[in-house]
Amino acid sequence: MKSLLRKIFLVDLIEGLWVTFRSQHPKNIVTEQYPAERPRIAERYRGAPRLNVHPETKETLCIACNLCALACPEHLIVVTSERNEQTRRKELTTFTYDISRCMFCGLCEDACPTDALELSQDFELAAFTREGAIWDRQMLEEGPVPTRYRY
């Protein structure tokens, strides 16, 4: 009898609808208005790669040891270097990073002994061409410039 009454008066459906109405309070809205409102990115986020330079001397921290290229599962990092005849040290010449194949696993970052290579919080990586996704040393050191939208 009770279940029949529940059926006639659609109690179960109304209970469900009540959940919907409860969630419509402005306090309960959680949608992020993305381009207008920037998301909060966690500190450990693994995004666009960065090749760090020394903050004062602006010299690269990379010692061209090639460990990141060896650690990369996709083999997408190419490091070239030449030996400086005076100091007998390896110096970085080019550094190429193909973010179109990168899966942001962070193994290169873990392998880096000098914290030169870092996966930063930048996440907007779209490019107009495939070649645009292959980042050279200059791009890696300066980082991408995200577009700010105004509404």
Partner: peptide, 19 residues
Amino acid sequence: YVMREREDILNIYEKYCGA
């Protein structure tokens, strides 16, 4: 509603391991 709760879990992941 489930996406709302899943978002909380994914935020914990993002803070813990960065993805």
